[in-house]
Design a protein around this nucleic acid. Structure first.
Lengths: 239, 239
DNA sequence: CGTTGGGTTGACAATTGTCAATGGCCGTGG
DNA sequence: CCACGGCCATTGACAATTGTCAACCCAACG
């Protein structure tokens, strides 16, 4: 697949869509991103994209597919720390980072490319910085979710967050988006069991809050759901 | 209080102790830190040190006392995201950060100073970078704790983390350290209720894992406790 | 067709929360 | 010096949430 094998006319790469929204990109950034995106790397689902401690030089700009930062306890319990979506940048700041971060596993088939060097474009550097700040904000949201929300609220809150994030990449269709993961994966992100997630999803559908079928998640009334789950906004204040 | 009003002979500032351990500091860094520490700012307990969204220019190097990053849900539920201890640096990277981070509240009386400008010393810049990377690593640890550990494990894991962090500032005495917070504060950090924390602490004492009285926390056998709670190390790989 | 992975369900158990009351400690003010 | 009030720790009884285990269904796929 080459760079010009664009699925639909007028559809730009989700990664380009997102980065140019995080900071207005100059011509140099556009050019660099275009040529980087033209050389995609492919990964199969359930592979290690980044391994904790090793391979610190590997940075990725996600072009398509979902992955997750993960931590495994000695007895096998698994916790997903955050989802990694198209337009996300991972492993970029790990050079001057002496701490082993977490592993990242692909949840679906995935394509990535090498993120262009930010030193060549201040606007690109800015976009990376905003992306990194957002990463951290989502970690904080995850802590509040796991620490102080019940199962129903966790699910609603996360679904709203994903809606927001995917919207930044142009990957939503109205009130719906593609959610290509299993209930067990969701459970490992929410600190719950798959059985309980299943039951709560059914309750959410009965309540008209969430409708998930055929990989498509629909949030009929995001504002209402936000209020129901007591969601705190992740604001992006103007740069 | 001047820089040479050192409380005990041979005891350096915990902040200096920690930063010089994160990266070997050159003479310029030592000088700058010395004069910064000589101009402390004082805060009472239960005050806002940093307010989410506002006051982005305020950075602090913690000299003494405890604080916590906090998030409050609309209905009043409170979650502490991380503890802020002597030697920690907060708010430094928020300049080129367009995202409103979290509020920070003091848990005890506290003294801070303005963190010296890192551009004047590469070693200081490196120390800040390591401190920042550690911050993020502790956030990841907090997520795994809240998502996949039970109450007993959360308590043990956090107490071990605090022991490690305080040791870096020279604030431990053997297997003990000063823990100047209430059980309710602990509960808000662990995503539990104060009542349950109380019960689990008693169970931990009966088991000989943790002894907490008169503000002094003792971990008789850290290695054993690490194994019991399935603790994953936060490693600092050589810079 | 058989196998496999994911979703669904029921019965039951374990963990954690809620509510309410009590007691110790300590600082303040009479 | 003593009484009072406030904060924090502790306890008991009980409820709610979430987990565990096992079985079953169904669709996709080789």
């Amino acid at each position: 697949m080459t760079a010009r094998a664009i699925p639909l006319a007028g559809v730009v790469s989700p990664a380009l869509h997102r980065l140019s929204r995080l900071a207005p990109l100059d011509a140099a950034a556009h050019a660099a991103l275009g040529s980087a995106i033209a050389r995609p790397q492919a990964f199969r689902a359930r592979r290690d994209l980044v391994v904790e401690g090793r391979d610190i030089a590997s940075a990725h700009l996600i072009l398509s597919g979902w992955a997750a930062r993960v931590r495994i306890l000695p007895d096998g319990r698994r916790q997903f720390l955050s989802f990694v979506l198209p337009g996300d940048v991972v492993g970029l700041y790990d050079h001057h980072r002496p701490v082993a971060p977490s592993s990242i596993v692909t949840l679906t088939d995935m394509t990535t490319c090498v993120p262009p060097d930010p030193t060549m474009s201040p606007s690109l550097d800015q976009a990376y910085a905003v992306a990194h700040a957002l990463d951290e904000a989502y970690l904080l949201a995850q802590i509040a979710r796991l620490g102080r929300m019940n199962a129903m609220e966790r699910i609603g809150d996360l679904m709203l967050e994903l809606q927001e994030r995917l919207a930044m990449s142009g990957l939503t269709q109205g009130h719906s988006y593609d959610l290509p993961i299993t209930q067990e994966t969701l459970a490992d992100a929410l600190g719950l069991t798959a059985v309980h997630v299943n039951r709560m999803l059914q309750a959410a559908r009965r309540a008209g809050d969430l409708i998930w079928s055929a990989r498509s998640m629909t949030i009929p009334d995001p504002k209402l759901l936000s209020r129901k789950v007591g969601r705190a906004q992740v604001r992006v204040t103007g740069a």
